[in-house]
Nucleic acid binder design. Structure first.
Lengths: 104, 104
DNA sequence: TCATTAATTACCTCTTACGTTAATTAACAT
DNA sequence: ATGTTAATTAACGTAAGAGGTAATTAATGA
């Protein structure tokens, strides 16, 4: 499991964040379906690699297609990081803790 | 208010994430108090600038000292991003939504 | 005033990130 | 076999990120 800075760094790029958001909203999608027309396929391919290596997405092979989906643990790790500092929120978010635990 | 990719990018560096975590845990601290000995003051200063420009911290001036603290909205924005995709968690995190709203 | 403390800005170096086009690999379909 | 589709790897250029030393600004204190 990669470090949190690595996760944040991977999401710190608008193209990659958009990929992850589409996968979260629509579920598993192929590289082709995720292709943005403002960028070339090789560039997209490298973004997928960054996301894979950061442990944010997993790749599944189906013939020539590469199907991607988000790893729940990655998003959950971010949620838990926020919750780790819930004292900062003056205790108003205590229920988040239980909720995140349930999702495990 | 900066974009989410900018926020993630700012936290995507181990030194800056450590700064933010100390501020969250200990509250307002001066640049000097946050100084890591593995890095020079100028380098730290530039990290503070990145965090300021990303809207993650605010600077307060006290004589020669610069006092930093975390902007709650920034951490909250991350929490809300996670929650925006709560359907992904099979509805088990619905309560997070209410909790984050309370913290506003 | 002059030295000290706190932090930043200027300048330079090196590495990584991100994009492109061209070439390649792999699986299908005819 | 051959062409087509899907995606990646190779090779290359440019820009941004992160670090250092030296110089500078600003406030304090003797």
């Amino acid at each position: 499991m990669p470090q949190l800075p690595t996760t944040f760094a991977a999401l710190g790029n608008a193209t990659r964040l958009a990929i992850v958001e589409r996968l979260l909203a629509e579920g598993e999608l192929s590289a082709g379906a995720l292709q943005a027309d403002s960028i070339t396929p090789p560039a997209m391919s490298r973004h997928f690699k960054v996301l894979r290596e950061a442990g944010i997405v997993v790749q599944r092979v189906d013939a020539q297609r590469r199907l991607y989906s988000v790893k729940p643990e990655a998003v959950q790790a971010i949620g838990e990081w926020v919750l780790n500092f819930r004292e900062f929120w003056a205790g108003s978010l205590d229920r988040l803790d239980a909720a995140l635990k349930e999702a495990e």
